[in-house]
Amino acid sequence: MSPYPEATNAMPYLIACYALGVLSIFGYAVWLCRHRIQVNRYLAAIDKRA
């Protein structure tokens, strides 16, 4: 079809973008919640000691 030597399949680009989306958005959300739980645990421990 194309007279030019390169004809890129654009699907890897599309997949890479959504992979980045999953990693960043879901990764941050998971970290947010886990960090929150950890802080709550520390607080509960301190409240117990008090």
């Binding site: 947010l32 929150r36 802080v39 607080l43 301190i46 008090a50």
Partner: peptide, 27 residues
């Protein structure tokens, strides 16, 4: 909505961390 939600969760955690630091320093 995801953005606002994440900001609020993060804000809450930051506030709790401050509380944690105050309490652990105080104790």
């Amino acid at each position: 909505l995801v953005t606002v939600n994440m900001i609020l969760v993060r804000r809450e955690t930051l506030r709790l961390e401050q509380e944690l630091e105050e309490k652990s320093l105080g104790g």
